[in-house]
Design a protein around this nucleic acid. Structure first.
Lengths: 353, 353
DNA sequence: CCTTAGCACTCCATCTTCTCGAGTGCTAAG
DNA sequence: CTTAGCACTCGAGAAGATGGAGTGCTAAGG
């Protein structure tokens, strides 16, 4: 059943007023804000209908009205106006985008931080590869008789390196030979295939060499795993303490712990959607039943996908958050797209996770 | 003026009781706990003295006593008993130490997280080099005509790498030549010296090569800077919400924001001390005036020093925190020490200059 | 001089009561 | 369908009232 235009207008006023004040909204207030001037009594009748239909709720009989999740949902789907970002806002976001040009691995971490700073709510970020990547290239550099540097480059052009140590002496020529071997037999393989490949070479390779090989392949596997495992971080969790709904330390603690300890369980946008809004009980996680989440995804080159999300009270300012977050996510996509040909300028490790 | 033994005993009881309950301690309670059985009136007289001397405070005339910072200080210095860790505790910490410490950069972050988990207070971690490190070795690996991988190893044996892109073609032989050049002229230099060195080579080098050189040196500088800048992180900030003194959301927010936003301003142990306890106003930062900090340092090889700290209310359980934290820090030192022999020791090698 | 029983006193925490006002639902008339 | 009018509800906050833990002080006893 479609709501009458006036009911929608009233609902919109209630939602927006409640979003900005966190106080139940009364009929008088609404009557003033309505385009057509009607009395508060008329509004009350409408409000009663809206409660009956489940779009609004009443904390107690003699209080104003508060939007229900259903009400927020309608608001978000139909009533919410696209919010244009102010110059200041776009500038702030652009600046945040500058920050991360360099680091690919650190992006998750920084994206989360930036998102939190941009919206003033707790935020989270993740990244994962869309399809499995493999190693594209190996290099082994001799350091001394028992140490060498392994450098691997993934198919998505990330470069990682580590100093590795063997227990037996391995000379430079051996390393050169091994490098050739690795590049010939271990590139463009999945992790499982790499292990197989390694097995099959076990017997026909001298121990010292095999050990070196093993170490390197192990390291490569770690690098691949690191890119496959969806890493997730939470940032700006302290922001929730400014919200009236989290004045209660226990509530704040509950949400914060959930976000910080299981960031990987935070919502991911449905496949194919670049942005998604989850309102209150629409969230699967019990800990998020009273909160709303806005989450956007962006592309990192062809093969990876990142996402940034924001967690807030159900009365969060959806229009602003959605506008800023999508602008931010688009900016990230653009940034990686531009770098693509010359790109990925991986940085090394970041204290993320 | 030395306190009488009984006064000390009373102070100790007050501190320990207050630490565990967060409630002011009354004379009756103390009289029961004292070795020698005396009346509560006697205790009250002693308490009055202790207040006068500044070791205790009275929230209001008719409440029990609470330790003052001075009281905590005396407690920590003289009265606190070394706390032996239970088997369970050492096991938990040992487990935390298992974490993969291979990526040095990740260590800071993980150490912070582990520390928070170990003590159930918010924790922080930093690492910095004791003295300036330089690049020990360069390698340039050709990828295609306009891309190459720069691999640098610092004197403290950290290996970093990045894919770099030139705007002009550079062939493999040129890279080999450049590698030699870099290793000859840019190793073991400070950042400023590297820039100078670069300048001095500007004219006598063909543009394509110089660009490559420039990119590489720039990257090296970034790596060095990254290691010089003390990186700092905060973890487990949510723990403060469980403490009664931070029930108030504003207070919690203030401390949390401070810790998360300026982790680099958190206390560092005085030079030469491996552990330090800072009580309330002993902290320099205004935001920490009502809190106490326990901070321990550990060694990462010869040249770097890491530290982990814990922030809590002044009534934090100093004995337990200190015991666990120092055990943890010692574990970290040991862990890096063990790796050390496996690492090439920078001092012994490179008669190259 | 130190200790201790006794006692009046203080002050917070808690509970109850009261009041106020915003906001409601309903009715009856336009 | 709208609206003025009105009695009603309910929570928030103010204003006592109560109780008890803990104090300080005094005076007597070792």
């Amino acid at each position: 059943m479609e709501l009458t235009p006036r009911k929608k207008e009233i609902l919109k006023i209630v939602v927006e007023h409640y979003i900005s004040t966190a106080e139940p909204v009364g009929s008088k207030m609404i009557a003033q804000q309505l385009k057509s001037s009607v009395s508060s009594a008329t509004v009350r009748n409408e409000l009663a209908d809206l409660v009956e239909l489940g779009y609004l709720e009443q904390p107690h009989t003699s209080a104003g009205r508060v939007p229900s999740p259903k009400g927020y949902r309608l608001y978000v789907n139909e009533l919410m106006e696209q919010r244009a970002l102010s110059l200041q806002e776009t500038e702030q976001i652009n600046e945040a985008l500058q920050m991360k040009m360099r680091e690919l691995d650190g992006v998750i971490f920084r994206a989360g931080q930036a998102a939190a700073a941009i919206v003033n709510y707790p935020a989270y970020a993740m990244a994962g590869v869309k399809s499995e990547v493999a190693i594209q290239r190996f290099d082994l550099l001799a350091v001394d008789s028992r140490s060498f540097i392994a450098v691997v480059m993934t198919e998505d052009s990330r470069v990682k390196s580590r100093l590795l140590h063997t227990e037996l002496d391995v000379d430079a020529e051996a390393l050169t030979a091994l490098t050739a071997l690795l590049n010939q037999h271990f590139t463009h393989l999945r992790m499982a295939e790499m292990s197989q490949q390694l097995m099959s070479l076990a017997e026909q390779t001298p121990p010292a060499l095999f050990m070196t090989l093993h170490l390197t392949v192990e390291y490569a596997a770690e690098v691949l795993e690191g890119s496959e495992k969806n890493r997730a971080v939470t940032a700006g969790a302290n922001n929730i303490l400014k919200l009236p709904e989290f004045r209660d330390a226990d509530k704040a603690h509950e949400l914060m712990s959930f976000m910080v300890e299981n960031p990987e369980n935070l919502p991911v946008p449905a496949a194919g959607r670049s942005m998604q809004i989850l309102i209150g009980p629409e969230n699967v996680s019990e800990a998020l039943k009273d909160t709303s989440v806005v989450v956007a995804s962006y592309d990192i080159g062809d093969n990876m996908r990142g996402l940034v999300g924001v967690v807030g009270p159900t009365r969060m300012d959806y229009a602003t958050v959605a506008a800023r977050l999508s602008y931010f996510a688009e900016g990230l996509t653009k940034m990686f797209g531009k770098q693509e040909n010359m790109l990925p300028t991986p940085k090394e490790e970041e204290p993320d996770e």
